[in-house]
Structure formats: structure tokens, C-alpha cells
Simulated scan of single mutants.
Amino acid sequence: MSTTAGNLHLSLHDIQRFGPDPLNTFKANLVKVEERIVSACRRAGRDPRSVRLLPITKTVPAHILRLAFDAGIRNFGENRIQEAAGKRRVLGALPVEWTIVGHLQTNKVKYLTRFASAFHALDSLRLADLLNTRLERESRLLDVYVQVNTSGEESKFGLEPDALLPFIETLHQFPHLRPRGLMTIAPLSQDTERIRPCFRLLRRLRDEAVKRNPAIKELSMGMSSDFEQAIKDGADVVRVGQAIFGRRPTPDTDYWPNVVKR
């Protein structure tokens, strides 16, 4: 079955997951998400231009991402570096930016520094040092967000809140890293009393961190299930996947092993 995007053919599996017309589905979903962002900003008394949408494309096959590009998406957020690298090879010179949002093993640093423009899960000095060394070798810079474990769950990656400020003070040692802000993952819950403390804590930590490092300005927080609450609590970047691309075929634990139990 052909779509409106050139000679791309959809398999039965593609149609079952994304429908017969993924391009227009993605366009419509993108409009809905952007409208929700605008509405959430207005309720919070914020300028909608102050919030940036990062579409999360994990599990979406490379050939389908061509349709996401045709729908207007120019930044692909991926959890697994090897999956992102494979998609980039398939998509070739497609002019998109790649953002890695998941935990990065130190032996995968060399893959990230070759193409990613941003990394939302910096959580150790060793990782910062390895990234900086590779980036220096490749004459590149990388935007980074420091991940903080605001929920207190042992299963999550990220710095403990008390460790953040000392960590922030060391970032000047890594000139090829460009600190942009902080990132967190709230529990997947409909209970705002569980979610809000995580977002509020990250905001308080940012307010303290920016005094030590003025570049730490942004808050990367909020996903498909909670991004409106995150905006209310100050999010500058919201990471939205399923509200744009539909339900994933695998549970989140496949992409966040030992990180979140959902």
C-alpha cells in the first residue's frame, strides 16, 4: 500500500500500528499536542513560545520517520543510542536533529558524539569527561541537560538532588559540553500529588543551580501523560511520543530497564 510520501510502501504491520495514512495522522496529532501546549501555557499565564516540544520517536521505524519529517517534525528524540544511530544511517542526509533522552552507557559515548545535538540524561562526572574527550576529538559541542532523580525511586537513574549543585560546579571543566538545564522523569500516574512534587523540586533545584551556572536555565520534564502539569510547574521542554505517534508496541520497561516500572 502506498502513502502520499513518495514511493514509501506500508506493510500490514505498519498499517495496524500507524493506520493507513500515518502522514496525516501525525500532522493531526501534532496539531492537537501543540494546541494542548498553548492551552496549558495560557492557564499558567505563560507565553506558549517559552515551551519547546521534543517529539519522542523511539520504536518508530526509520521509514515511518520519513513521514514524521513530512509532517513537520525536525527533532527526533530517542532513548537508545544504537537505535538512533541505525535510524540515522537509514535516513541519511535528512536534515533533522537527534536528541538522546535515555541513560547512556559509557561504552556507547562514541556513537552519541558522532551525530546527536543534545543529550538529556547527563548524570555522572565520568560520563561528562568521556563525552567531552570525544567531542574535543571531533571538534563538536553538545547541549546537555543534567538528569535528577526527583522521585527518590531507587530504580531510576539521575543524580540525587543533594548531589546536583556540587556536580553543576564541575561542568566548567568540560568545555565541549554546553549545559542547558535539568531533566527529570516523574512517576507515571494520574495522581498529581505524586507528579507535582517531582516537577516542583526540579524547578527549585534549577533556581539554585542557575546561581552557580547561569547556563542552567531550562527544565526538561513532562511526557505524553503529564506534560500539561509539567508546563504548569515550569517546563521549558516537554518530551512527547505516544500522543503523536500512538501507543508503542512494547512496554516502557523495554526502553527504561531498571529505570522506571510502568
Rank of each mutant, 00 (worst) to 15 (best):
L164C: 05
P166S: 14
E169L: 06
T170F: 07
T170D: 07
T170I: 03
T170G: 04
H172N: 12
Q173Y: 07
F174M: 05
F174E: 03
P175L: 12
L177F: 14
P179G: 05
R180D: 07
L182E: 05
L182Y: 06
M183G: 05
A186L: 13
S189G: 08
S189M: 13
Q190K: 15
Q190P: 02
Q190R: 15
D191S: 09
T192H: 06
E193A: 13
R194V: 08
I195A: 05
I195H: 02
I195G: 00
I195L: 15
R200N: 07
L201V: 13
L201M: 14
L201K: 08
L201C: 04
L202T: 00
R203Q: 06
R203G: 00
R204V: 09
L205D: 02
D207W: 07
D207G: 02
E208H: 05
A209E: 03
A209W: 02
V210T: 04
K211H: 08
R212Q: 14
N213E: 15
P214R: 12
L219K: 00
L219I: 03
M221K: 06
M221Q: 09
S224D: 03
S225C: 11
D226G: 03
F227L: 05
F227M: 06
E228R: 01
E228A: 02
Q229L: 15
Q229E: 10
A230C: 03
I231Q: 01
I231F: 11
K232W: 08
D233H: 00
D233M: 04
A235M: 02
V238M: 01
R239I: 14
G241H: 04
A243Y: 10
F245C: 07
R247E: 14
R247S: 14
R247K: 15
